[in-house]
Design a protein around this nucleic acid. Structure first.
Lengths: 225, 225
DNA sequence: TAGATTGTTAATCGATTAACAATC
DNA sequence: TAGATTGTTAATCGATTAACAATC
């Protein structure tokens, strides 16, 4: 029976899963810094602006246990999260669009921390083809299917302008891509079995605007009181 | 009494607020396309991969009403969301770091849709200073306070490498910045009254990895059945 | 009118917080 | 040992879903 390993089957609350990603990022950073071996739920909470209770509750879904008055072993906790997120198993990804954004992505060093590797970058612009972005040569779109097959690519980042995003998505779907990492603001229309992760940055700025408005309202009210 | 305008005081559930941003993006797109004047909750739901009931429930917090069998007036709905998000009131923002990422951000055209404008971009690299990014000249870090004062800047995007992110954050805080839009993966340590919006892209990729693993498990299971 | 779609209330489900025992 | 911190259970709070009346 497979039910022996309970923890593997246990599903995390969605909200917990989202925070686990943040813990992962934080722990990765702490591991690199090497300043401390243990961390308290209180410290984690302060950095991520949540409550220590929340942190402990989230960790209760994991195997790793903390020690009262000592905290959680950073390396141990990170190892479990790495395992959980499959950051050891490497994923090959491609980038379509070699503008500033695509180039930024191609040069990004942090992918190795989460078990991902950019294997190719494509552009439709003849001028750009053949030029280098970091260690990658910009390839023409027609090479996409070959690269997908060769490197078993399941994920593609779309870094093209708004206007061509849907077109590129259609192309990628036709080539059998399983997940689209969408950096355009365009809402893509693709089959339901294709995963879409929207990285629309304007959302973040809208949050900021909202929080700024909130905090100004608060300041105004307290000045009136 | 201020309680006359109920709707203005009414607070949205946080989850609803998150989705309102998506509706805003979608409606902005539809408005530009000019293909249709009305849209059904069903159509919105399909594009955003949520349920129509959820869409209607969210819209019930707004003033705009839909018509049975006709749907919601796109322009009207967008106008209300624009009002809500304050996308008409313009916000001046600055970018620190003129690498690929900072440049991509500086060139991004979508800011006008959400009432934001990049007024300056900075870099510490002498080589880059004076060069142009789109219509902006790259300025030295020492000009930051002047620009902040001159343009009443409250929000700064950090697009520098991991290693200098904290340093830049400290600088910006000292100069009175109210909100930091953090594009580095570094978890920043800043005073609690400074808003931090983390735009760490690795989170999105972790979600993709997870969803890919899920869907493969599902496929495997159904092939076993 | 009949049927489709909206809008709202109630029921269910899920996430967070509070409380506190266990433990170092 | 005393006190601080973890881990878990129960209580509260919030979000989603279901059901259905209202409406075009």
């Amino acid at each position: 029976m497979r039910s022996e390993k309970k923890k593997e089957i246990l599903r995390f609350p969605k909200a917990t899963f989202e925070r686990l990603k943040q813990y992962h990022a934080l722990l990765t950073q702490l591991k690199i810094e090497q300043k401390q071996q243990y961390i308290l739920s209180e410290e984690i909470a302060e950095m991520l602006r949540i409550t220590p209770e929340q942190v402990r509750k989230d960790f209760s879904y994991l195997e790793t246990a903390g020690k009262p008055k000592v905290g959680y072993n950073i390396a141990e906790l990170l190892a479990e999260l790495d395992e959980l997120f499959g950051t050891n198993a490497n994923d090959n990804i491609i980038i379509v669009g070699a503008g500033h954004l695509g180039s930024a992505l191609a040069n990004y060093k942090g992918f190795q921390n989460i078990g991902a590797r950019v294997v190719a970058i494509f552009d439709k612009d003849q001028e750009k083809i053949g030029k280098m972005v970091g260690e990658l040569m910009i390839l023409p779109l027609k090479d996409i299917p070959r690269v997908i097959r060769r490197f078993k690519v399941r994920t593609a980042a779309i870094c093209v302008p708004e206007e061509s995003a849907q077109q590129v998505a259609d192309l990628l779907v036709a080539y059998g891509i399983k997940a689209i990492w969408n950096f355009s603001t365009r809402i893509l229309d693709v089959p339901n079995d294709v995963i879409v992760q929207n990285e629309d940055i304007t959302r973040g700025l809208l949050s900021i605007k909202h929080m700024l408005a909130e905090s100004e309202k608060k300041n105004y009210e307290s000045s009136q009181a």
